[in-house]
Simulated scan of single mutants.
Amino acid sequence: MSQDREFEIVREFEVDATPEQVWEAVTDGTGGYLWPMDPPEPRIGGAAAFGSTVTAWDPPHHLTIRSEDVGMPVQSVNQLEHVIEPRDGGRRAWVRYVHSGILTDDWDNQYDGANKHTDFYMHTLREYLTHFAPRPVAFATFDGPEASQAPDAFAAVGRALGLADGAAAGERVRVHGPEGRLVDAVLDFRNPYFIGLRTDEALIRFFGRNHWGAPVGISVHDFAPDADAKADELAWQGWLNGVFSRP
C-alpha cells in the first residue's frame, strides 16, 4: 500500500553571476548544468518540461513549475521553485531553490536520493555559471551495466579514475579517462555519492546511484568548440563498462 507523504528540499546560496545569468541558466533548457529539456513558456500557465506547468513567472526573480501528474510510480506531485535576488549591486546573485511535492512509495530512499542529488546539482549550477556560461554545450548521459548497482560500485569508479582516497574537492588531479588517456582536471566535488571533474572544456559528473538501488551514471557537459556529444558518450560509456568488466 502506498503512503503519500509530502517532502521539501531547500537550498540557498550565492554565486558570482548576475540574476539575469542565473535566470538564463535555469530556463534555457540546454543542458549546461542539468540536462536538455524543453524551456518553459514565458508566462503563468505556460507549458514546461515533462508535462509541468509554469505557476510563477517573474524574470529574473521568481520561477515555479509544477506537475500534479508526474507519471512516476513513486511520486504524484513535483514542484521546483527558484527565487533569485541581486547582491553587490547586481554583480552577484542569491538563489533560493525549493524542490517539493508528494512521494507515494519508498519515501525514505526516494527523499534521501533527491536530497543528496540536490547538493550536487546546485554545485554544478554554480560551476557552470562561474566557468562556462553562456557557452554552447554538447550533453551526454548514460548508466553503467547491472554490476554497477553493487554496494561498492561507486568506490570502484573512484579507483578506476585513480583518485587517491584523500583527494578532496578543490584539488588539481590527473585521472585515467577513456582509452587510457590522462585527463587533467579540478576535482570540484567529491563525497561518497558523487564525483565532479572540471576540465578547461567540460564538466564531467559521476553519480553513485548504486546507493539507491540504481546503476552508476555519468553526465558530460562539453563546452569545447568542436564538442561531439555522441563521441563523449561512446568514450565514457566504454570506460564505465570497462570498470565493471575487470576481474
Rank of each mutant, 00 (worst) to 15 (best):
P59S: 13
S2C: 00
Q149D: 01
R174T: 15
Q21P: 02
V74I: 09
A235T: 06
A147S: 12
A147T: 06
R5E: 10
P178K: 08
V173Q: 12
E179L: 10
A224V: 08
W236G: 01
F194S: 02
S67W: 05
P86H: 05
H82V: 06
V83E: 14
M122F: 04
H82L: 12
R87E: 12
Q3L: 15
R5P: 02
P39H: 07
N115W: 14
R174A: 12
G32P: 12
V243N: 11
A164S: 13
A164K: 10
V137A: 09
D58V: 15
A153V: 07
H123W: 10
A147R: 10
D16G: 12
Q79F: 04
K116P: 00
D88Y: 03
S100F: 04
W236E: 00
Q149A: 09
V216P: 05
L240F: 03
D232N: 15
D105M: 05
V70L: 06
E8W: 01
T118S: 15
P42V: 11
R159P: 00
T199H: 08
G45Y: 03
D222H: 13
R96P: 00
L234S: 10
Y33R: 03
S52M: 14
L161S: 09
D38T: 14
H123E: 12
H221I: 05
V175E: 01
S67G: 15
G166T: 14
G242E: 07
M37Q: 10
R181M: 04
F7R: 01
P19K: 11
D108C: 02
V243R: 07
A202R: 13
A229K: 11
D152V: 02
L163V: 04
T130H: 03
S2N: 11
A17K: 07
P40S: 12
I218P: 03
D200Q: 13
H221C: 13
R91Y: 00
I204Y: 04
P19A: 10
R135E: 13
H123P: 05
V183T: 03
R126A: 13
P136Q: 10
L161R: 04
G144S: 06
D152M: 06
I195Q: 08
D112H: 13
P151A: 14
D112Y: 07
F142D: 07
P86L: 09
A93M: 01
D188H: 10
T18P: 08
A168T: 13
V54P: 09
V22E: 02
I84V: 15
L163W: 08
E201G: 14
H82I: 01
G242F: 08
V70G: 05
A25V: 05
Q3R: 12
E41F: 05
P40G: 12
G32C: 11
R5K: 14
D28N: 15
Q75L: 13
Y121D: 11
E12C: 05
E14L: 09
I65G: 06
V54L: 11
Q75W: 05
V10L: 15
D28W: 02
W107S: 04
L182P: 00
F50A: 15
P73T: 07
D184N: 11
M122G: 00
S219K: 06
F13M: 05
H131V: 04
P247S: 12
Q237I: 00
V15Y: 01
E14V: 10
A25C: 08
A25Y: 03
R91W: 01
H99M: 07
S100I: 11
G158W: 05
